[in-house]
Structure formats: structure tokens, C-alpha cells
Design a binder for these strands. Sequence first.
DNA 1: GTGAAAGCGCTAACAG
DNA 2: CTGTTAGCGCTTTCAC
Lengths: 332, 332
Amino acid sequence: LKTISDVAKLAGVSRASVSRVINNVPTVNAEIRKKVLKAMDELGFIPNVSARNLRIKQTRTIAVIVPLISNLFFSRLVQTMGIEAEKLGYKLLICQSRNIEKDELNFLDLLKTRQVDGIVMASVRNSWEKIKNYLQYGPILMCNECFLDEDANIPSIKIDHEYGGYIAAQHLLKLGHKRIAFCISGDDSRSGLERKKGFLRAFKEFNLSFDESLVINNAFDIESGREIFYRLQALEERPTAVFTGSDEVAVGLISEANKNGVKIPEELAVIGFDDNPIAKIIQPGLTTIRQPTDDIAKASIECIIQILKGERDFNDVKSIVLPIKLIKREST
Amino acid sequence: LKTISDVAKLAGVSRASVSRVINNVPTVNAEIRKKVLKAMDELGFIPNVSARNLRIKQTRTIAVIVPLISNLFFSRLVQTMGIEAEKLGYKLLICQSRNIEKDELNFLDLLKTRQVDGIVMASVRNSWEKIKNYLQYGPILMCNECFLDEDANIPSIKIDHEYGGYIAAQHLLKLGHKRIAFCISGDDSRSGLERKKGFLRAFKEFNLSFDESLVINNAFDIESGREIFYRLQALEERPTAVFTGSDEVAVGLISEANKNGVKIPEELAVIGFDDNPIAKIIQPGLTTIRQPTDDIAKASIECIIQILKGERDFNDVKSIVLPIKLIKREST
DNA sequence: GTGAAAGCGCTAACAG
DNA sequence: CTGTTAGCGCTTTCAC
């Protein structure tokens, strides 16, 4: 494998000149550029990126932390992030924390060890206390997640989860539902708690009280949706509607309802979150809250790259909130 | 940010000793180890991985090339690969080629530029001629894909696509279908062509001829499944069954059939491929060919890492074929 | 505009 | 078992 010195020797110039040609420094004599290019071509020279990284103290790589990538929302989010990063000349390293705090910290260590230039957290399990220690090593951006701590001071690109919970509840309450189950992905996820706040706000506006026993944790995939159906059926006082927090959970739940002859929405109304393609596939079509997934992904990547390039100051970015809306289909 | 020299100075030992402690070299005096550890801790020392990579000429990173990650099959594949790589101490860089030849080559360049140690190709668009030039820079493994060229000599972990096409066709032919549409993901994908071979073999066994006008290209997601439904409906001589090549396509197609009152399987039988969770969600349940996605992913990662560690010789690995099977549900 | 030289932070012979 | 030494391949002042 050839190095910059081999090229310099063959072209009869200095290594510095070769480096300048590689990096498209404009003030290089056309003659030299030509000779260098020719030599590079002849030798099949390819610059060694590790060496370059060491020297410039950058990797042009950013990490994104998600729980698991096969989740429909996250796979789409990460797909768009990857394409966007690529476009801007960066690599995206996808890190699956599986909601394990320890793993999440290990991925944050990528910043310390200089393996990535910045991190986008599309999922957080650790406390703000823990996370903030990493900020000294590079920029961290929250993507659709948040800290409940008042003093958490970190830029975030997200939707208004509180409002999402609010419009979901409002929609169901307007339809006359009074007992509504509320699902949270993961165990007390923060965005889930935000949504719950909005949910409760709607109940308050309707002068109704929410039965806390109807909160269901760890609802994150099709399989958990199936289980939740049976759990709800087993209740003495069954709810007449359920907010699932994700389309995947909704779809699992509806599928099981269909199998058991429970009519949706007559016997149980279902509202999802995200608006994935499966929301249109299931029968009946799923009413849901649409998230602008691609916009969230693009904005996150653009933002962190701007910060890395110094085009934007980390402390100036506060919170960017993207719009959501209710998509009415047949499940409510 | 502290370096190994800072630690050495504080601990009163040489940089080499610090390095040995970092790398858990066993032959280090306990006393020295303790002093070094203490110094590292005091200084908050974190080794710089770029420097290490440069020195050892490795990155402990492998790349996997897929078309797009939000596809249900690939997101699951890559999820498992990521977890497996992590377990074995490697990072997985996910590269989305979007089926663009140029992009695929750009990702292969990661090998040349020493940014990754090896590559797993879960998708190939370029010719064997092009790909083989990259083998001199590091190991490349095919994952569920293949080259049609006779002389292509490269290890691959995959299912028997030919057999998959065969059992799908056989199942439908046994049910009495004679006109069956055949979908291929992408445009002449290689695994798709393999499947078609098996498809034709079954026709031959039944002494039937296959109508080439029933081949449909570029079938890869839910949306294309929808379109295919209408395309099939528009035909003069409609097929009575369709092999979609993926569950996503099948589900899009069935969804549209339901909407239009076309009875599945009475008016149109549908068979998918993969056996994703959505196969059980759609109504009627989707008959499909189950791929051992997780096994494929694990075997691929294990294999390439063994090669990288020198525990296995690149040229000894031939082809590893994993079993598939027909899952009968209600759509056929 | 170009080259010489220093050094990014780490590891691995080698000698002791 | 430990320290000295010599780079890995590249970029970037700083003179010229």
C-alpha cells in the first residue's frame, strides 16, 4: 500500500505538496497538481484516513444512539439520517443501546476516545447528571427525546410530545370515551411522560379524571401490542379506547382484537403514534398522530454538522420543535 | 485532553508501560499497573483510538452494505449484525447504497482508505469484475447475495434462493394455479434471478410453461405492492396467484385487494418471502417463505470477524447455506 | 507557491 | 519485566 511519500518521490515534489493536492488547496501550481495526480494514479494511491484523523483530530463520523433499529420509527429515522450525513460528507455510526444504561454510556465513550466527532441521542436512559459529563468531549444533540430536569441545557430537535398526548386524548374524549388506556414505550420513557402530561391536560379540560391503573409500560413492538390486548380484556372495568404510543403496538393490538372478534372501534377505539405505512395496511385503518420523521432526521444531522463545522454555536441552539398532526382513519 | 505521556510522567514510568497496562498485557508488574491505573484515573485519561488505529493498522470496524435500512428485512438483519458485532468488540458501519452502483463503490472504498477492516455485502449492484479489485484491500463477504458469474470466488452466507423460488411455485402449482406472477426486488437483482430459476424448475416439473410477461421488476416496498395490485388487475389474462418476493410487497398488494373487494386467496393467492411480523398482521394471514434472518446476520458477522482475527482463512470459507421453509397461512 | 521539519498519540521491536 | 527508540501516514506552520 502506497503512502504520500511514495507519491511525492515519484512526482518529484514534497509531501506537503501532495497533501495540498489531496485536500484541494487552491494555491497549488497547475503543473505540480498535474504531476501529483498522475503519480497518485500510477501508484494507485489511497490516503490513509486513520493517519489523517489523528492529525486533524476529527473523524467526520457522528454516532446516533437508538434503542433498537428494527423498530419502524427508528429504522426510518436512521435511514434518513444516514443518507443526509452521507450527503454532507459524514459517516453515521448507528449504536443500539437496547435501552441498557451501561451500553448507552459505552457509546457515549466514542466521543471521549475520539472515534466520533459528535453524538445524536434519539434515546436516553441515563440521567442528565451522567450525560452532561460527556459534553466536554464534543457536541451531543437530543433527537425527539428530552430530560425532565429543569437545568438540562442541551439542544434538541423534536416534536411536542405533550401536545401529541393532548390531541390524542382530546380526539378520543370528543368521541365520548371516558376510560382510556395509555401506553408508554419502554419503562417511564421521558417522551412518554411528556405525552402523558398532555393526555392529562385534555382530561382536565373535559373535567374528567384519568385512572392511573390504565397506564401500561413497556409497549414498544407488535408483540407487546398483542399482549396488551389481552391485558385490557382481562380488566374488570375495561377501557373503551387505548392510546398506544406507536403504530406498531397499535397494529399488534388490533390484529389480536380482530382474531378475537372484538370490534374496532365499536368495542375498542385505538389511536397510534408515528404514522408508519402499516397504519394504512391494518384493518381498520389506524388513526394516529403523524410525526415528521424525515424532517426530524434531517434537521438533527444538519444541526450537529453545522455545530461541528463551527457554522453554528452549540450553546445557541436551543430547542427546535417540529409540527405533528392527527390523521383520522377508521380505528377511532 | 491527556495523552499517554502525561500518564507516564505522573506515574513515573515509561509510555510503553502505560501502553501495556491499557492493552492488558499480562506481564506487567502489579505495582506498575497500580501506579498507572491511578495516574490514568487522576488525569481522566482516555486513549485516542485514531492514533491506535494508525499504529496497529486496524479499525475494528466492519461495514455492511444494504440498499436502504428501513426495509423490514434489512432493518432486522442489520439490527442483529450490529448487536453481534458489538458483542465481539467490533463496530458496524451501516452503508445504504440505495441500489446505486456508484454509491456502492464509494462504500467499498472504505476498505481502501483503511476506515474499515472488512465489508459484508448484503446487496450488490456492481459486476464481479469491479468488486474483485477490492479484495486486495481486505475481506469481503456476501450476505444473502451472489454473483451469477461462474468464476466469482468469494465466501457467502445465504439461503438457497433457487430452492425458495422452487417451493413457492410448487406450493401454488399444487393448489392448481397455472398463471402466477413473479416479482423481483430491484431491477434484475441476483438473488431474484436465482429464485426465478427455482420457480421455473417447479413449472417444468408440472409440465407447465411460465408466461414471461408476468415478471415484475422493482418490487421492494409496501407502495410498490400497491401498484402491482393495480397492474395485475389491468391485465387481460389475469394471474390467479402472485409470488411477491417479500412480505412488504405482499402486504401492500393485499391491502389494496381488500380495499377493492378482491378476495384473497379465492380471486388472487399471494405468497410472500421473509416471514416478517407483518405477515401475521395482515388479513388474511400471509403464506410466506421464512428466512432465518437472525442466523444469517450472526453467521456473517462471526465469519468476517474470524477472518479478520486470522482464526479462519478467507479462501477456505466457501458458501454457507442456511435453511428456509414454507409457512402456510390464509393467503394461499 | 513550495519544501523542510515537527509532531498528532500510540505501539512494538529491541536491548538491557 | 521495563524503558528507549523508531516510526504508523498525514497535515501544517514556518522559512524561503
